[in-house]
Design a binder for these strands. Structure first.
Lengths: 246, 246
DNA sequence: CGGCATGTTGAATCTAATCAATCCACGTGG
DNA sequence: CCACGTGGATTGATTAGATTCAACATGCCG
């Protein structure tokens, strides 16, 4: 129903700034045009100048950059409630593309409507600003991850991040395996072969396991330790209860 | 004199959004407290929660992250007019530190004043928002650079970026060598030894040369080619077009 | 059943990290 | 004026980690 369209963005925004009834209804008045994308589909193309922003309702997306040398780099993964292209609200053209990783439901909102709501409700503007900052925090952490950690730790770190972000959505124990090893390779800047070997080590070290379209973290604290993971950069004030565990 | 304090930020902001006289005087009314830092000094510490933002007036800065494994990662370089910690305006604590690379003059502005001006002058808010987005563009390009390019190209790319940003300030021909090889290593995620060898190759390939505290690019197009550099992500020349009225 | 996407493996190769010296330019103080 | 200290750049030798290529396995789905 229509509720499904607004719930993810509501809960994401109000996680950073509690909202009044008035603000909620202003958000709900935003015209959102839903569109369903099959898995592994291009949603926005590098170089485009969209006049709408989009919010992810269901599924998982990634942002990706195409390099002239033929390599592709994944810049971020996205979960329901994310607004991946707040990034281009004031920029002339998109410096990256947006793809679905699974079948995903995406809602489009005209820039004009967003700007209008921001003008009228400064707290909503603040909340959106804050979302952008959180995005940038993750970018910075990725830079540090790629520049400062060796393969094993780097992959572990990626897995920690995705796991925590799933947890923030209330998922626990079994997490959706929305990425494959090729994706991890493109996200970490390593070859698929190397990623495969690292994943195997992680599994045999008891830090990671898969089962169908889900993965688990049999030793969550061990994984955190291996990754040197400090969740502070995600700024999720919903601090996770550390051990759901088996 | 006071002019020096405001000129860099003026010219930076008005490069993205032309300003009315009223907006200019609103900016000039911002209380800026100047402070001079010697070279290689910590300006903001990772974990702090400053209540002021700062604008770089003269010199060069870098943002840096300290990893638990002891390595340090440089996240960005900064030029006069930059506002490095717009990033933390709405965030509880700083995820990185800020350092001077040379002797630098930095102006501090209370968050409160900035927020107030933004509320009162939406176009200034837009201009600041846009600065943040540009920052994020550079982060993304760095991720792609580190993940998708080998050493030689990666260093060439870093050099291209810094050169273009110097050019945007009107410098031409001889550029300030505000970074050393250790800095390039920390920025590129490589060892100082490797950076040294790459710099030597670049020099012997006629793409880069140094002379005292300056460097030159004897074959600028060659350097661009070696780096696969596409300046689009810096969004320098393109003024804004889109629909920002309502 | 066949086709396709994904994951797995081995071997050869190469890039970059590491360690440990050394060198050089420059500024300082005796 | 020279000795010295320092920060930065340079070098060679060795090793670890990652890439590449090519092949093969597996599971899913029409």
């Amino acid at each position: 129903m229509e509720d499904e369209l607004y719930r993810p963005i509501f809960s994401k925004l109000s996680r950073s700034v509690p909202m009044t009834a008035e603000e909620r209804s202003a958000l709900r008045a935003l015209p959102i045009q839903p569109r369903l994308f099959p898995r592994r589909t291009e949603i926005l193309r590098q170089g485009e100048s969209p006049s709408q922003s989009c919010v992810l309702v269901r599924g998982h997306l990634c942002r990706r950059k195409q390099l002239p040398n033929g390599r592709r780099q994944i810049l971020s993964f996205h979960f329901p409630g994310d607004i991946p292209d707040l990034q281009c609200l004031h920029l002339p053209e998109l410096d990256h593309s947006l793809h679905s990783l699974e079948e995903s439901l995406v809602g489009f909102i005209p820039h004009k409507s967003i700007l209008q709501v921001m003008r009228e409700f400064p707290r909503i503007a603040d909340a959106l600003w804050r979302q952008m900052l959180l995005d940038a925090c993750i970018f910075r952490e990725w830079i540090a991850n790629m520049g400062g950690r060796a393969g094993y730790e780097r992959i572990a770190h990626l897995l920690c991040e995705q796991t925590i972000r799933s947890q923030a959505l209330g998922i626990d124990g079994r997490y959706p395996l929305f990425f494959n090893q090729q994706d991890l390779a493109e996200a970490s800047g390593m070859s698929p072969v190397q990623v495969n070997r690292i994943i195997q080590s992680l599994k045999s070290d008891g830090l990671f396991s898969t089962e169908g379209q889900f993965y688990q973290t049999p030793d969550w604290n061990g994984l955190l330790r291996a990754a040197e993971f400090d969740a502070a950069y995600l700024n999720l004030e919903t601090p996770r209860t550390p051990e759901r565990n088996a």
